[in-house]
Design a protein around this nucleic acid. Structure first.
Lengths: 333, 333
DNA sequence: ATTGTGTTGTAAATCGGTTTACCGGCATCT
DNA sequence: AGATGCCGGTAAACCGATTTACAACACAAT
């Protein structure tokens, strides 16, 4: 564990000053081949790598960005993290991973680290409604990009899936299979994704002469999925198709279906949102509106890089979603 | 976007020297209440937070650790990441997330960052066999902990699940349901987890007078799961129970089962390993050997912290696994 | 001979902390 | 009175880079 070589060491063995080596390495000085060769050689033999902390301190940036998600397990955010890491790494950035557990103090804490330049920027995903404190904190620091879910009043680049189109696709899929009596099981009521998915679903259903009889909001959780479907079956037994706004909700719904021995598809048609879980391996495989996680990540990282570079950016990007048709929607006779 | 306050600023407004403030904050100096109050007050009003890069540079450590996994999506590693982040955060450490995509260059690259003190330590998970280069690179840097999968010849703390016990549990569950003709679908052949899971499975099967007729190795992938089960059904139609060494393999196997219209449980009994996917929501829910991801994370972070602190540590920790009995194993008449 | 114009560098300040070595003054002990 | 110890605090070096400002030299042009 000898101490790693510093720029000083390189300079010394190359017979030059640290400044020269630094400027050469950073391209702000072009040297005659002979000198350059000496530097390269010294670097090679010493196996020199610059100290990232010194670099960060000096340059005032760290080439590191942060991703803050509510929870890292949860297939959707896991995929998002993977995609963001890929994008960041491709852009020469490291990724700091934070999880907020949806707790405001933790979100604020990590925003604070951004303010202290621990990271150059932050990709922020949350899914709870804000009382204004977050909005204020985000407003205080400029390099933030919101992804997946909106926070009211925040002035920052935003990257969302096209939820409305997703809702439409779900509705179209069901109505064209003959379903007319539909329902929606969503996430928290105040939240953008819930609202928009329902809005699209409702609009498109209406156009086909179908009706969305019930909309049940709650947490994006298995628990809520289970309970909501129970309630739905009890109170609205004539519903034949339900659009479930996330994979977690779907798994909960599946539990209820199993308990009541109602076959998915034949008994009740289902479309879900996300397509992050192993939906293709369920029986029957379930039809889903698939979020383009890679696309979200690409847009988010690119918006963040723009922001860091001080570029004015488009306020909000919408990433298209896609219908992945499987067999959980049965034609209605 | 005013420049954030520095220690200097705090010292100035408190009418003290930077050294005093620093030492006070780091506990190496105790001050009379009046002076301390002045500092606290200055910090409060300026909203001071130390610059982490300066801190890291000066102290030679960053209070940041890295986690390197093959892929972040993949429910098992996602859960591991979540658990490690939780442990790290509880210990006041930040987590850098890296994904190797199982490519050696990337693994080496990240090890290099460790050597440069970008992170204080690295939790390393890989799942491919090594040609010795990794072993060498890991040997060069001391603060590495191996988790989940072994790399031959590496001298570092290691944290693994008790794979052998897991194999045993799987075998016992099947043999006690009357199964005598068993099979194993595993991951890559050379790899510890495959070997150990099979070994335990085989041993315990033998004790019950059952036999593991076939063992099919391959990647830990859906693809391999599907193909292996096909092959198994074709060549060994008398097998009644199969132990599948990961959730991915299970999903592949499920596909084959569905194609051939063989019901899980009644048609073929299955036990899987990991229990990271939504196994409880399959029909029937599938019995699994559950890895204690939180336990793995706890041991790994604690071993790494020990290593960083220079403490001699136990060479390898084994984390118990647990049988989660569901309904994919049917009693054999 | 003087002036200019590159070329090839370097000295020194700076980023924002931590840490070592020390200092002046007061109380206590002998 | 002199030695001892403690309290409250500071000066200055250091971590390892980047960056600004400038210097020495060669060579050509005037």
């Amino acid at each position: 564990m000898a101490k790693p070589p510093s720029l000083q060491d390189v300079a010394r063995t190359a017979g030059l000053s640290p400044a020269t080596v630094s400027r050469y390495l950073n391209g702000s000085l072009s040297l005659p081949p002979e000198t350059a060769g000496r530097i390269d050689h010294a670097i090679e033999t010493l196996n020199y790598q610059p100290n990232p902390h010194a670099r960060s301190l000096s340059r005032g940036r760290s080439d590191t960005i942060g991703l803050l998600v509510p929870e890292i397990d949860n297939p959707f955010f896991a995929r998002l993290a993977a995609a963001v890491e890929r994008e960041a790494s491709a852009a020469g950035l490291s990724l700091m991973l934070y999880s907020s557990l949806n707790r405001k103090e933790r979100e604020l804490h990590y925003l604070e680290r951004l303010r202290r330049n621990f990271v150059d920027g932050l990709i922020f995903a949350t899914n709870h409604v804000d009382d204004g404190e977050l909005t204020a904190a985000i407003g205080r620091s400029s390099n933030v990009v919101l992804v997946d879910e909106d926070i009211d009043g925040v002035d920052a680049p935003k990257v969302f899936s096209d939820n409305v189109a997703g809702g439409r696709l779900a509705a179209r899929n069901m109505t064209s299979a003959g379903h007319r009596n539909l329902a929606f099981i969503g996430g928290p009521e105040g939240i953008m994704s819930s609202r928009e998915r329902l809005a699209g679903f409702r609009e498109e259903a209406a156009m086909a002469g179908a009706e969305v009889t019930v909309a049940l909001f709650g947490a994006y959780s298995i628990h809520h999925g289970r309970d909501a479907l129970r309630q739905l079956l009890d109170w609205h037994p004539d519903v034949t198709g339900v659009f479930v706004a996330s994979d977690e909700l779907l798994f909960g719904a599946l539990e209820t279906l199993r308990d009541r021995k109602i076959p998915m598809g034949g008994g009740l048609s289902l479309v879900t949102f996300d397509d992050a879980g192993p939906l293709a391996f369920l029986d029957p495989p379930v039809t889903a509106i698939r979020q383009d996680v890679a696309g979200l990540a690409r847009e988010a990282v690119s918006a963040l890089r723009g922001r860091i570079a001080g570029i004015e950016d488009p306020p909000v990007a919408r990433v298209p979603v896609e219908l992945v048709e499987r067999r959980s929607v049965s034609p209605l006779v």
